[in-house]
Design a binder for these strands. Structure first.
Lengths: 130, 130
DNA sequence: ATATGTGCAAAGCATTTGCGGAGAT
DNA sequence: ATCTCCGCAAATGCTTTGCACATAT
């Protein structure tokens, strides 16, 4: 049976309060505020437990360290190359299975878009304008 | 100056001959045929060197160990959840930028499809048929 | 009271690095 | 002959695990 501990609450609250997916170390550092004696092993164990319970989703990105987020509906991500922030993209291409050759069975897909977020794109266009 | 060694040739040839991206261990195991005394450190060192020379591309996948492939034109990948092999998908959705909210600038994208490859899908349908 | 959770330290794993010797030029 | 490259083994860095104590129920 799953117990409600100070550590687990601190870890979960960090993800609830953050508007974006966080890495192990971001969670560790921030959760210390709510659980000062927190050890890194406890963070790993609780992230995994929360994931198994369906309360957190693993966000695996190609070439990036993993992050976790509070589950929402199916979505993808946009990574800004300038500020390194990760954004949620709610749209999803509907016809993705049509890319596959005959005989292949599609079960899931990940899409990561990269480029400049609104803020960084604006900042860059200002620079080149002057 | 870069030397042409038995080990480097064996490693590169494995990638050239394989029709799909390979992991470090796949490369290691197969390259032993051409270089029996091969050590794993040499594999890592040569993969990195070949990548720096532009002769290999790193294929970074979300939540999967990295693979390398001989550079070709833009494409995506399909990962079989049963046999863990990675396949190249030559098609690419043309309208991917339309997923983005206004103001975001798209520079690149990664797509990973997951499911059952042709061989594994066939094997599973045989099992459930009998 | 008791069984799960925690913190610590040690163990695992994949990858990298240092080093003496082998091999390509 | 020289200098890069190799294989080995040790060193990393991140994650997991074993264990004894703490704590939620």
């Amino acid at each position: 049976m799953i117990r409600s501990t100070q550590q687990r609450k601190a870890i979960y609250d960090v993800l609830i309060d953050s508007g974006r997916p966080l890495s192990v170390n971001e969670i560790f550092e921030q959760a210390k505020n709510g659980a000062p004696t927190l050890g890194i092993a406890t963070v790993y164990r609780n992230i995994k437990a929360l994931q198994d319970e369906g309360k957190l989703n693993l966000v695996a990105l190609p070439g990036e360290s993993p992050r976790w987020e509070v589950p929402t509906e199916h979505h993808h991500h946009f990574l800004c190359r300038t500020c390194d922030r990760l954004f949620e993209i709610r749209n999803c291409p509907t016809n993705i299975g049509s890319l596959l050759p005959d005989g292949y069975v599609l079960e899931d897909h990940d899409i990561l878009l990269r480029g400049q977020c609104r803020d960084c794109a604006k900042r860059k266009s200002l620079k080149s304008d002057k």
